[in-house]
Design a protein around this nucleic acid. Structure first.
Lengths: 191, 191
DNA sequence: CTTTATGCATAACAGCGTTATGATGAGTCA
DNA sequence: TGACTCATCATAACGCTGTTATGCATAAAG
C-alpha cells in the first residue's frame, strides 16, 4: 500500500537546502542562488519566506546556540568538578563537530550576519546555562557577580582555545595535545 | 624657499588609501573600488602592485601581528609576575585600540583572507614572543612543551575574552568590569 | 464576482573582486 | 635611432553576490 507523501512546501525545501549546504561548506557556501538551485525553486522564496538570506542565517545562529546551551547543561546532583569538566569536553566536542555553526556565531568565515533581537535571545539563554554551570562551582551564597565572573572565565578559555586553534596558532604546535592542554587549564579554573 | 615634494607613487597612494579606510571601517570598508577612488587611481594598480586585494590584506595582517608581538615583549630583568600582567594589559589594549587588525587576524568581520606562507611567518614570530613570555613564568629547566602549554593557556584566555566581548557576550553583562574580571583570571594562570 | 494578499519565476539592479584589452612610457639591445 | 620587451595604466567587461522590481497566478475574503 503506497503512502502518499506530503509534498514539501517551498519554505521547507529552502530550509533543507540551506542546512545541507551549510553543514557541508559553512557560511560561504550559502549563496541565495546555490540555495535556490538546491531547493529546485527560484531565489524569490528566500525573500518571501525568510525575508532574505539573513533570515536563514538567523535560524542557523539560533541552532548553534542551542547546541552550546545543551552542552553546558549540568546535573546538580553530580560531583560539581566532574560535571563541569564533562561539560567543557562537550563544548569542545560541539565546537569541533559543528564548525559551521560555531563560526557563524563568532562572526568567522565571511559571516557578516548581525544577529537580531530574537537571535540574541539565544545567547541570553545559553549564558543562563553557563551561569547555572558556574553556580555548581561556587558556594551557595555566591553573588550574581561572582557567578558571572566564573562563567566568563570558563567561556573565555573554552572559546579562546577553539578560536586560536582554528586561526593561526593550531599549526604552530603540531605535536601538542591541544585538548589535553586546554582541559588542564580548565581544571585549574574549576578547582 | 619652496621645497619640491616627491610625488607619491601610485603604489604608495594605494597603500595609504587602504590603510586609512581600514582603520576607519575595518575589512569591510576595503573594496578595491573604494581604495582606488580614495587613492585617485584606477583599480588595476591593486593588481599590478599588490597582486590583488589579498596583497593589501597581507600587509595589514602582518602589521597586526607585529602589534601583538610588540605587546608580548617582556623584560627578563623585571619581576616576572608584574611583567607578565603588564604584557597582558598591553595585549588587551591593542585588541581594543586596533580592532580592524585584530579582526583581520582572527577571520572576523567578513575577512575571508587566508594568510600566505609569508604572512604566517608573522604568527610564528609572535608565538616566539609568547614563548619567551611564558618562559619567565616557569622554572629555568622547564621543557619546551611546558612553555608551549603556558603560552597557549594565556593566549587562549586573552583572545577568548576579546572575542567573547565583541560577539555575543559583551552586552549580556553590562555592569561587569570586563577588564578587571579577565585580569583576575589571568593572574590565577600567571601565579 | 471583485478585491486583496501571498507566492512565484524572471529580469534587472548595484555592488563585489578579478581579468581582458589596448595604449603609453621606460629600459635594453643591435 | 629604431625595434622589442616589460611594467603600468584607464577602461570595459566578466562572473559572482544579495536584493529589488515586474508581472502573473492562485487562494481567501467580502
Amino acid at each position: 500500500m503506497a503512502v502518499r507523501e506530503i509534498p514539501l512546501t517551498n519554505k521547507a525545501k529552502i530550509l533543507d537546502a540551506a542546512s545541507a549546504l551549510f553543514l557541508e561548506g559553512g557560511v560561504s557556501a550559502l549563496s541565495v542562488r546555490a540555495i535556490a538551485a538546491n531547493a529546485g525553486v527560484s531565489t524569490i522564496g528566500i525573500y518571501s519566506h525568510f525575508k532574505g538570506k539573513d533570515g536563514l542565517l538567523e535560524a542557523l545562529y539560533i541552532e548553534g546556540f542551542a547546541l552550546i546551551n545543551a552542552a553546558m547543561k549540568v546535573d546538580s546532583s553530580e560531583d560539581p568538578h566532574v560535571s563541569a569538566l564533562a561539560a567543557c569536553e562537550r563544548y569542545l566536542d560541539i565546537a569541533e563537530n559543528n564548525q559551521a555553526h560555531y563560526q557563524l556565531i563568532f562572526g568567522d568565515a565571511g559571516a557578516d550576519y548581525v544577529p537580531s533581537e530574537a537571535a540574541r535571545a539565544a545567547s541570553v539563554e545559553a549564558f543562563g546555562g553557563l551561569l547555572s554551570f558556574a553556580s555548581i562551582l561556587l558556594p551557595e551564597d555566591a553573588s550574581a557577580g561572582m557567578k558571572q565572573k566564573k562563567a566568563l572565565e570558563i567561556w573565555a578559555m573554552l572559546h579562546g582555545s577553539v578560536s586560536l586553534k582554528r586561526h593561526s596558532v593550531g599549526q604552530l604546535m603540531p605535536a601538542m595535545d591541544w585538548r589535553g592542554a586546554i582541559m588542564e587549564s580548565l581544571e585549574k579554573l574549576i578547582s
